[in-house]
Simulated assay, not measured.
Amino acid sequence: MFLEPFYHEAADGVRISPDQASRFAKEVAGDFNPIHDPDAKRFCVPGDLLFALVLQRYGLSQGMCFTFSGMVGGDTVLHFPAHAEPRFAVTDTRERICLRVEREGESSRDADLVRAMACSYVAFSGQNFPHVLVPLLREQGVMINPERPLVIYESMSVRLDHLDFSEPKLEHAEHRLEVKGKRGDVRLAFSIKADGVTVGQGFKKLLVSGLKPYDEAVTQGLMESYLRQKAAYAAPGVKNARAHGVRGVEQGGNGSA
């Protein structure tokens, strides 16, 4: 499947290197959150990569809920159950739960459907900053701390009416931000459509910490830095340089977890 370049299947479990995680975030999800940079002090594996790995291993179910229990560091050995029960967990070698998964309804292991759903969701999920988060923050009069930007992926739920569809597309629905002091709880809702018909819906929850009073100039600077970083990474020669061990532009800005 398309995920093979982004993890290692070892005898003791699944390993995801910082470089693999960072490449997935940038090249598949379009997510330039600095927390996914290989040398980030608080580096973590993208939740969307874990989501996609679950779909690849166990298929797509009508009802699915993913709850992230903690940040997964680089080269952490992850254990995925041999058989998926309605409720199961992905753990590390210390038996710490990294991800809880709940599944219900009919399931499909059709490779094309699984890949289409994974790609569609990941592409949607990775674009939260700046186009979705910034307007929400502006409305509440707060902004991300430019000195220590931190956006954490907490959970995601999806409900499908049926599994008889192909080429799903996710569209934005109602988004909500609740500010509690320096913390912000974000709920991003979406609808899932195929052939112009709604086949499901879902939402993603994020935690934004270290919020500060809103400053338009600072926010614009963050957005411009983020978009420059994204454009630089996509520029001709950057990916080839990275493939040969040459470090590309990876710092600055902030994105969705």
Rank of each mutant, 00 (worst) to 15 (best):
Y7V: 07
L53W: 14
T198Q: 14
C119V: 12
L136Y: 04
R15P: 07
R187K: 06
G184M: 02
L206P: 00
R228E: 14
T198C: 08
V208L: 00
L163E: 14
F2G: 08
V28K: 10
V142K: 01
Y214I: 00
E250C: 06
V238Y: 07
L227N: 10
M143Q: 07
G221T: 07
F51H: 10
Q140D: 03
A173N: 06
R15D: 11
L222W: 08
F32L: 07
D185Y: 01
V54N: 11
A241V: 04
E95S: 07
V158W: 09
D195A: 09
L207M: 03
S108Q: 13
S209A: 04
R15S: 07
G30T: 07
P5C: 12
A84V: 02
S155D: 12
R23E: 03
V132T: 06
F43P: 12
R94C: 15
I192Y: 12
Y121D: 14
P46F: 10
E104G: 05
P34Y: 08
R57N: 00
L133C: 02
N128F: 14
T76D: 15
L53H: 12
D39M: 07
T198S: 14
C119L: 10
N145D: 15
N145P: 12
H172W: 13
V14T: 15
M1I: 12
R15E: 14
L50Y: 12
N145L: 09
E85R: 03
P146L: 00
E106L: 07
E4K: 09
R87A: 02
H162W: 12
Y121N: 08
D195T: 05
Y7L: 13
F6I: 13
F124S: 06
A116E: 15
Q140H: 05
E154V: 08
H36M: 15
R228F: 14
S69K: 06
G126Q: 06
D164K: 08
L211S: 03
T76G: 13
G59H: 10
L222P: 08
L177I: 03
F24H: 04
A118R: 05
S108I: 11
S107T: 13
S17R: 05
G210Y: 01
D31W: 11
G74R: 10
E147M: 10
P34W: 11
I35Y: 09
F80V: 04
N240C: 05
F80C: 03
V208P: 01
G210V: 02
P146R: 01
F6D: 14
L206F: 00
E106M: 09
R115H: 14
L150R: 02
D92L: 13
G126R: 02
P236F: 00
A116R: 11
Y7G: 06
V179S: 00
A11P: 11
F88G: 02
V28F: 15
P18D: 02
F190V: 15
L188K: 04
V218K: 02
H8W: 14
D161K: 13
I152K: 01
L78W: 13
H131Y: 04
A257G: 15
T198W: 09
